[in-house]
């Protein structure tokens, strides 16, 4: 289990937030005057992860090169925390030839085989794939682990339940990570799930389950460390449910009228200023540090966007490549 480095956790959270904030701007910049989802430099659906940084950062702090992640439709935070190249990822989001998938995938389909990172826009379908990666790691005699990430809404999909059973039955080195951000588009958890804790559901499948409250990055770090160590040591799967926060809409353009009073307090629950305050109190962070860390993140993001926007676009003929190996 890696040692807690508070400043590293904070820097990684800020790096992700500055990235998402900038993509948010870029995404909306050229969709007006008549807002059109298909227009602009970044077209299509956009699911941003602002508010959910503690989940990705706390978990990925324990991963090493060769460990795998399957992420859902909201993948940026886990991609960045797991070491996916920011330039190539950004170029993919801009649909450029230099992107991870040469513009074929887009933001919901980021594939980085180097880092064993993938994502899918079909809810919960990364779970079985993570089991298969874990199966391979085990058969290949490595101590690598697979992390399967999805939202609390995904935990009502058959693939989730089948995967938990498979992983427990075959003692696979998988950690199932559920980001409970209270909402599945417009449907609150209370309207979708009878059992209030997915940690309890895990017990039913024969694996330990832990629920982390309060979107607390250090608590995530602790719980993930134990789960990942367990998987690495050959002791089998576990489930980690993290109560987190969807700071913005489900996708960009979501007016969130359904969200009611929950919206009023959302900014007060932002985990990044809160963690900055904690670190400041501990004497680990000064106001200057806050500014320097944000500036460093911005510079990296600027460079990635510059890389993406100066990269060539694919042409129609490229669409016919890559159907088969």
């Amino acid at each position: 289990m890696n040692e807690l480095n508070r400043l590293d956790l904070y820097k990684q959270m800020v790096r992700i937030r500055q990235y998402e904030a900038r993509i948010l701007q870029e995404y909306h910049a050229d969709k007006s005057p008549a807002w059109d989802i298909g227009a602009g430099l970044i077209p299509g659906e956009m699911h941003l992860s602002a508010g959910q940084e503690p989940a990705a950062v706390g978990v990925c702090a324990h991963l090493k090169k060769g460990d795998a992640i399957t992420a859902p439709h909201r993948p940026h935070h886990f991609a960045l925390a797991h070491g996916v190249d920011m330039n190539a990822m950004t170029a993919e989001i801009y649909g450029r030839l230099t992107g991870l998938s040469h513009g074929k995938g887009g933001h919901m389909h980021l594939f980085d085989p180097d880092n064993h990172f993938s994502c899918s826009g079909i809810i919960a379908q990364g779970y079985p794939v993570a089991c298969g990666q874990a199966m391979a790691f085990k058969r290949q005699g490595t101590d690598h682990v697979a992390i399967a990430v999805a939202g609390e809404g995904a935990a009502n999909q058959g693939a989730f339940h089948e995967s938990l059973n498979l992983a427990a039955l075959w003692n696979l080195p998988v950690v199932f990570v559920i980001e409970d951000n209270d909402w599945a588009i417009s449907v609150p958890r209370s309207h979708s799930t009878a059992n209030t804790s997915n940690a309890d559901r895990a017990l039913g499948y024969g694996m330990p389950g832990v629920r982390v409250e309060d979107n607390d990055v250090e608590a995530v770090f602790e719980a993930a460390g134990a789960a990942i160590a367990r998987a690495r040591n050959g002791d089998g799967p576990s489930l980690l449910e993290i109560h987190t926060l969807r700071l913005w809409g489900h996708f960009e353009g979501d007016a969130q009228a359904y969200r009611g009073a929950d919206l009023d307090t959302v900014n007060d629950r932002d985990p990044i200023p809160r963690y900055a305050a904690t670190l400041t109190e501990l004497g680990d962070l000064t106001e200057d540090d806050v500014a320097t860390i944000a500036a460093a993140a911005d510079a990296e993001v600027d460079a990635a966007i510059e890389f993406a926007t100066s990269s060539p676009e694919p042409t129609a003929a490229d669409a016919l490549d890559h159907v088969f190996a």
């Binding site: 513009g103 074929k104 995938g105 389909h109 676009e313 042409t315 129609a316 490229d318 669409a319 016919l320």
Partner: peptide, 16 residues
């Protein structure tokens, strides 16, 4: 659609 999955980038998608 010429028997390829629908690609993301605009020139690719409009191409198919």
């Amino acid at each position: 659609v010429p028997d390829v999955p629908i690609p993301y980038a605009r020139p690719l998608e409009q191409g198919v």
